[in-house]
Nucleic acid binder design. Structure first.
Length: 256
DNA sequence: ATGGCCTGCAACGCAGGA
């Protein structure tokens, strides 16, 4: 069994105890982190190695930053989008166990039609060629991370209130559909799931307690892998801890 | 009631998140 997860930790420095605890209790083969918010010199390499994981990471000061942890040997393939000059560290492709794992922290978008929204869409235009290349190199490809897109209305606590805003706008959802059109499945929707299944809840307004969240963190598996996906679920336990991330892990299990 | 909360930075409030 191959167990892989994604978790936007909103500062690895603050969330390191939660991450180490979760590695210990859940023992994933691969864990993709986003929003580490740390320069590489400050990355907690020793603590993660001591937990039994190798890790590839790329960070920057204050913002963004991604890291991918593996129980077995890790080979870094890419940490940027090709032909795109961007200081924001949002992408990391690695090989592990003959699988390519593409860890994404897709831009938030701020507001529809803002500069940050245009950046989000431009970022996608540069992402698609990379996916095509990675998929051509290895048909066993998993794309996971914080997509900052709720693909369907059922992934939103209050679709009417959110209609037309970021995370759900038609242009963003089109980009998500284009990812699937490369030959991928949304692992979460391969299985029956509870209604109101979310991976992120705003810190404000007691949103978690009130169940007001969004499903914006995803695990996509290429068609060569998706048949072997045996489970996909959201682990809400870390969101209940003291001083949690606003996101919680999404996990997929493959029988390979 | 369009703001509430959290993080990092270097403040003594801001930007950014979603």
């Amino acid at each position: 069994m191959f167990k892989i997860a994604t978790w936007n930790v909103n500062s690895l420095k603050v969330r390191l105890p939660h991450v180490l605890q979760w590695l210990e209790s859940e023992s994933p083969d691969v864990l993709a982190l986003q929003e580490t918010k740390s320069i590489d010199e400050n990355f907690p390499l020793e603590a993660i190695n001591e937990a039994g994981y190798q890790v590839s990471y790329i960070g920057q000061k204050t913002y963004n930053g991604v890291a991918t942890l593996c129980k077995s040997s890790i080979e870094t393939i890419s940490n940027c989008l090709p032909d795109y000059d961007d200081v924001q560290r949002r992408i990391l492709a690695i090989n592990n166990s003959n699988i390519t794992v593409l860890n994404l922290y897709i831009p938030n978008g701020s507001e529809v039609d803002s500069d940050k929204y245009r950046y989000k869409l431009e970022w996608f235009s540069k992402l698609h060629p990379l996916i095509k290349q990675l998929h051509a190199d290895n048909d066993k490809l998993i794309i996971l991370g914080d997509f900052n897109i709720a693909p369907e209305d059922e992934d939103v606590h209050d679709p009417e209130a959110w209609q037309g805003s970021i995370l759900v706008s038609p242009a963003e959802r089109d980009e998500f559909d284009k990812l699937l059109a490369h030959g991928f499945k949304d692992c979460f929707r391969l299985f029956d799931q509870d209604e109101k299944s979310f991976s992120w809840w705003d810190y404000r307004q007691a949103a978690f307690r009130r169940g007001r969240g969004m499903r914006i963190d995803h695990i996509l598996a290429s068609d060569a892998l998706s048949d072997s996906c045996k489970a996909c679920y959201i682990d809400k336990e870390p969101r209940k801890l003291e001083r949690p991330s606003d996101h919680t892990p999404v996990v997929a299990e493959f029988d390979i």
